[in-house]
Design a protein around this nucleic acid. Structure first.
Lengths: 191, 191, 191, 191
DNA sequence: GATGAATGAGCGTTCATTCAT
DNA sequence: CATGAATGAACGCTCATTCAT
């Protein structure tokens, strides 16, 4: 295995450039430059730009999942768990704006669609915690009887939107507002 | 005067290609081709690609606004008006998937950010109906006391997410689900 | 014959645009616009852009020749005639900067080379007066014994250079300087 | 470090094509082709076409300056120095016709005007030798009392014209004629 | 393994010219 | 005759990818 140093630098550089400038505002040469490696070196670690983009996505997803699971207790009520997760997501996005903007770019691009399709018969990941939580909520009849994907929309739609507004400077989220917005999302979900 | 025929064909082709492939999956030559015109012809109607993209956006926004206003009655309750609007938005997106995907691409791009910033001191448009509605809801104390932008997130976040899922085939929205999701959004908003 | 009005407008517009912006700063559409005619109309009067450029050149050459001949008396001495011509040329260039700049552009372009080659076995024109004058000067042994083309260079080189400098604002030619520069040219020529 | 080989080939190709066909008769693709490199390669060495054109100009100017200075002795008389310089210029132009035609194209274009304006508060270069020479000639009262720019015109105008005629085949300059034309220029300048 | 110079297809855009009206 | 909308070849330039060193 090649020195992970270089791989890390490439990934970091790609994250920063793509988050700030979008996929086509981040040429491979610029990524290489920012990473302090030769242009050709990127291709030792990633077959091509698409692969780099997808692997970077997976890494960020993993980081987010780790944060979500930190302090997550399956013993608490559905509502409490929902609030734990929502708060964690929002705080993560706000304190890691590059990660958030990258994830957004990814989702709003052909990559995102492919990715979701691939996941219809998916393995365990961040969304799965939610899936289990929602399924439990459904069976306990504490949340609305709607298809899972719609519950995701109800839960994530406002969060993502609000996180973007914060990052773009249209609102300034503090702890109070974070709590309130998540409570509001819960109001949308709960039966 | 130029036959508007050609302008229309260009706009239609651009809509379709950009909705399906994103801005950089839609080269001018391809748009021209699909529109059945010469490459240079586009430039008789639009100064450059940016202008084409922005004008197309404005046209779609206008169409959507028209649909929203159809049957909108300021005399009804805040809740009823919210449901009218939400239903109209969702129905429009579902029956005009290209429009919806175009609007999404636009919003999730530098164009969209610029557009929003430009509109901070904005004139009457579709978002303004919502603004007025929310302000009334706030003053009547029927919706939560949150900044306007967050109310937008609460209202639109789930709608957009759900519309996308429908278009990508992840859910199949029927009238029943539409009513339910909008009711859920209302639950998120209402005090 | 078509209304000469339009032809004149086209020629005038072409002169102005080409003099100010060069040949490729003067698209046919812009010339048509400035001339107040349709783009296609130009092609009724001139087969193509090259023809327009060449005909315009010929017109300017003719105008200049007329000015040169005004008050020209074959009876005066070679020196006096030379000074008459030089003064006339310089005054013309200074008071018709568009004409001058056009002529310059023309000479310093493939058109100019072709034009000169075509003229090696040439008819009567402005240069011919000079040719006769120089031939007479040679036979009278009042000017240096050099090939004709070199005499032209000695006579015109400084004039053109000085006219350009005046138009570009690097010198300001007044009557005194005009007289002096032409006298200097004569010093270069005379035996 | 890139082999300067390629840069040289590009420069040579650009020189040849532009000298022969003018700036717009020398598309980047054609230059690349003639240089035996890919179209994109040019942009590794020159930011854009303008930069290529200007750098090539500067290189030629430098070469010419070197030739001028070779054997130049500030101790000789103004006349002798003038003749040294003029002879060197003319010989250089004649034996490097591509250089000469390139320099001409450059001077007779917007580039040239910008270049001259930039140089009004200029550093030492080829023209400066002339400036010093003329200033000395003025103070010694051996050359005519005219503005510097006009002295340049008197000195260079005929030289350039005669060099062009030679290159286009309208005269054939030999050593004898070179000496004579420069002597004639001196006659024009001297008091 | 690492490099970065080289590549060339592909982009957005311009403009001389044509031809239906 | 006059028009100007339409054309498409050609331009300057970018960038993902390759490969000799």
């Amino acid at each position: 295995m090649a020195k992970p140093d270089k791989r890390d630098e490439i990934v970091r550089a790609a994250l920063e450039l793509i988050a700030e400038n979008g996929f086509h505002g981040a040429p491979m040469a610029m990524i290489a430059d920012k990473a302090g490696v030769g242009a050709g070196t990127i291709y030792r670690y990633f077959e091509n730009k698409d692969v780099l983009i997808n692997e970077l996505y997976r890494e960020l997803e993993q980081r987010l999942l780790t944060v979500l699971m930190d302090g997550y207790s399956p013993d608490k009520s559905v509502r409490e768990r929902f609030i734990h997760l929502g708060t964690a997501v929002l705080r993560y996005c706000i304190s890691n704006p590059l990660d958030f903007r990258y994830l957004e770019q990814f989702h709003n691009s052909p990559y995102g669609v492919v990715h979701r399709r691939d996941k219809i018969s998916g393995e365990a990941d961040d969304k799965d915690i939610y899936r289990k939580l929602f399924e439990e909520g459904l069976s306990r009849q504490v949340i609305k009887d709607l298809p899972l994907v719609m519950l995701f929309s109800l839960a994530f739609g406002p969060l993502i939107s609000v996180a973007r507004d914060h990052i773009l400077g249209f609102v300034s989220l503090d702890d109070d507002l974070i709590v309130k917005i998540i409570a509001a999302c819960w109001d949308g979900l709960k039966r």
